[in-house]
Every structure is written in C-alpha cells, then in structure tokens.
Amino acid sequence: MDTKLTTKPAKEGVKTMNQPVAARQSVYRVNDLNLWYGDDHALKDVNLDIKQNEVTAIIGPSGCGKSTFIKTLNRMVELVPIVRTNGVIEYHGRNIFDKDYEVEELRTSVGMVFQQPNPFPKSIYDNIAYGPRVHGVKNKKILDEIVERSLRGAAIWDEVKDRLNENAYGLSGGQQQRLCIARCLAIEPDVILMDEPTSALDPISTLKVEELVQELKKDYSIIIVTHNMQQAARVSDKTAFFLNGEVVEFDQTDRIFSNPSDKRTEDYISGRFG
C-alpha cells in the first residue's frame, strides 16, 4: 500500500490499511462468465471476486473486452441485441442473470459513469433529481437536499451552486463528468462502474476525478476501466489485466505493477504491446 502513488490524504489511507483485507465482503463474484457478440467470443471464462469498498481497476489493450465486462455487471451489455451470456455473476450472493432479477433493480444499486460525459439536456438540478424522481421521491425539500449532497459528494457543488437551473451542457467536459458522477450518487448506489471516465478529459479534470474516486471508495465499491496504467496504479486497490477477453492476472495493484506473475502482464505494463 505504501508504494502506491496516492493523491488522497494520508489519514484515510491509514484507515483503509487498518481494515484487514481478508475480512472484506464480496460485492460481485464472477464465475466462468462467457459472452458472445454473435459468433465473436468477447469474454472467456472470466472469474473475479470484487470486494466491498475497494477500487478495482480493469486494464488491458483496446478491444480486449474491458467495456464489455463492466457493462455486463449492470447488464447494460444486453442492449446489444446479438449478445449471449453464459455463467454466473453473483451480486451480493444473487445471480444477476436469474429470470426474476429485474434489471431496473440491479441498475438502481449499481451506478455507471460512461466514457463520454452524458448529462441529460436538462438543468443541472434536474439532472441530479432525475434518478430520485424516477424512483418515486417527489418532495421538493428532500430533492433539494439530495441535489446538494450529491453535488458535494462529487466535489462540484461550489462550481455549480449558483447556476443549478442552467442547462448542464453549459458546463465544461470535466464538470459534466463530475455531474454524471453526482447523478449516480443521487440514488445512493452501492457500486459505481466507471468506463474510462477520464479519457475525454483534460489533465486537471482527470486529477479531480481521480481524487474523487479515492474519496468515494469510503462509501462505495468502485470498478474502473482505464487504458492509463498510471491511473490504475494511482487509484486502485486491485487490478485485473484483460487480454483477448480473458483475465490474465488479477491481484493487488502494487503487486501487479511491481511484480506481476504473468509474462504477458509484465510486457503490457512495461509498454511492450497495446
């Protein structure tokens, strides 16, 4: 843990270290997951155990199935009509592919932040209030509180508090992305999936989002796809290295980056391919 290039205050780092890793509960248990786009075998026998209040990074070259995998965790991948899956993903012990598991229920507790910021073409306020409203929160006072809390949680409150009624598309790309994170927080999920959330952002916005990830892991479990290995090293506790749809290696982030056990992992992180 000490070797990690972390940007968060030391105090919280200590807190995390005090918690014995083995005692952490599993959020997701992925068992022999296979996925096909038509005949294209995109995920092959994926097995992963994702723990609560950890940041899990997914790295790997372009086209190796990172996005596919993360979208499988909230079943967004099923929006592609030709997708077939096979295997088990247990979310808190329950298989998300069960016939009676409603995707809406799953996606309410598993939030997602996309590669391109995608706010709704509504006001900043309405962007945040959308989720709670859809799930039945109508009271204006409660909504006001949720909006403030979520925007604070995503470290963007001070920048937007005077312009809550302006259209979200007036914000910069980095602000839009933090707004999308806030929108996610508004329905108090349990897991946040992030698919290359900083790839469309400038370096300063990227840094802000990374700091935020560190902050958020106190309350949430985070799974983050990144093509940037320094980012994975900076923000994550565990790292999974994907290659051609397979998990080559999954371990503590510092071990992956200092002493990988697979030759292919070493080649990748030392920049020999991808």
């Binding site: 967004m76 929006l79 996606r107 996309f114």
Partner: peptide
C-alpha cells in the same frame, strides 16, 4: 443519453 437514464434504473 438514453444509456445514462437506463443505467440509473
């Protein structure tokens, strides 16, 4: 934008 809404359940 649709994906964003679907992902919120």
């Amino acid at each position: 934008i649709r994906d964003g809404a679907l992902a919120l359940g």
